[in-house]
C-alpha cells in the first residue's frame, strides 16, 4: 500500500501573530516553524498502514526551503521519500493554486491513499485536501478520527464526527482523507530515525518541472484577494467581580449574568 502524506509548515500554535507594515501579511521573524499539528496524524497513520500492508510512504509539501526541515521530521518518523515543491512564484498562493500544484506533483505517483491535515492552523481554510481530491478525481473524506482499510487493501471506511453524530463513510481506493485530532498518537522521531532520514530520497520540484504556469499561482493567481489583515476586534473592558467570599462573588456573578448580560 503506497501512501502519500501532504505536509504544511506553519507557525507553532503558541506564536504571537504580528501584522507586517504592508497590512496584508504577518511578520515572520522569530517564528518557530513546525509541521502542521493535524498533518502529524497523517504521517502516523501512513506509517501504521505501511507496517500492516507494506509499501511506501511519500511526503509531499509546498513552500520555501525551510519546509525541508518538516519533511525531514516526517522522514525521521519513518516515511520513505520526500518531495518539496518550491518556487519563488508560488509565494502567496491561495488554496486552489496550492492544491493544483500538489495535484501536479502527485498525479503520476502510484498511490492508494493520500492524507492531508483537516486544516492548516495558519490560514484555517481546510480547503486544500478536498480540492486536491477534486483535481485528482478521487473520493475524499474530511475530518476523520478513525481509518479502517479493508484486508484486501481495496477499500476504506472512515469515521467522521459531525455535529451530534459520527458518520461511517466508505469508498474504494484510491481516496483522500483529511486527518483530525484523535486519529492516533503520532510517534516521535528516534535518533536512529533522524540519522537514517538524512540518507532518504529527497527531491525538489519547480513549477517548470510540474508544467505549471507561474501566472496562475502565487500572489498574482489568487482568486481571493487580501484587502487587509487586522488584529482581533477589541473586547469591552472586563469586570472583576468583587466580594469577600467565593459565595458573595458567585451571587454577584449570577446577578450580572442575569441582569446585565441577560444570558439566562
Amino acid at each position: 500500500m503506497n501512501v502519500i502524506v501532504c505536509l504544511k509548515q506553519v507557525p507553532d500554535t503558541e506564536t504571537q501573530i504580528k501584522i507586517a507594515p504592508d497590512g496584508k501579511s504577518i511578520v515572520t521573524d522569530d517564528i518557530k516553524w513546525v509541521m502542521n499539528p493535524y498533518d502529524e496524524y497523517g504521517v502516523e497513520e501512513a506509517l501504521r498502514l505501511k507496517e500492516k500492508f507494506g509499501g511506501e510512504v511519500t511526503v509531499v509539501s509546498l513552500g520555501p526551503k525551510r519546509v525541508t526541515e518538516s519533511i525531514r521530521t516526517a522522514l525521521a518518523m519513518g516515511a520513505d521519500k520526500g518531495i518539496l515543491i518550491s518556487d519563488d512564484a508560488l509565494e502567496g498562493s491561495d488554496s486552489l493554486a496550492t492544491a493544483k500544484a500538489l495535484a501536479a506533483a502527485i498525479k503520476d505517483l502510484d498511490y492508494d491513499l493520500i492524507f492531508t491535515g483537516q486544516r492548516g492552523v495558519d490560514d484555517d481554510m481546510g480547503v486544500v485536501g478536498a480540492s486536491l481530491a477534486e483535481f485528482l478525481d478521487v473520493p475524499q473524506f474530511s475530518v476523520i478520527v478513525k481509518v479502517e482499510v479493508a484486508e484486501d487493501g481495496k477499500s476504506v471506511k472512515a469515521h467522521r464526527p459531525v455535529e451530534g453524530q459520527v458518520l461511517v463513510v466508505e469508498s474504494s481506493l484510491p481516496a483522500l482523507i483529511t486527518t483530525q485530532k484523535g486519529l492516533n498518537e503520532p510517534r516521535y522521531a528516534t535518533l536512529p530515525g533522524i540519522m537514517k532520514a538524512k540518507k532518504k530520497p529527497f527531491e525538489e520540484k519547480t513549477l517548470a518541472d510540474l508544467g505549471l504556469d507561474p501566472a496562475k499561482v502565487g500572489e498574482g493567481g489568487r482568486k481571493v484577494k487580501i484587502l487587509e489583515l487586522t488584529p482581533p476586534p477589541k473586547r469591552g473592558e472586563g469586570k472583576i467581580i468583587e466580594g469577600e467570599t467565593p459565595q458573595e462573588k458567585a451571587a454577584e456573578l449570577a446577578k450580572l449574568l442575569h441582569e446585565e448580560a441577560k444570558v439566562f
Binding site: 495558519d122 484587502l227 489583515l229 487586522t230
Partner: peptide
C-alpha cells in the same frame, strides 16, 4: 491563526 488576526 485561529483568531489571532482577522483577514478582510
Amino acid at each position: 491563526y485561529a483568531g489571532k488576526a482577522y483577514a478582510r
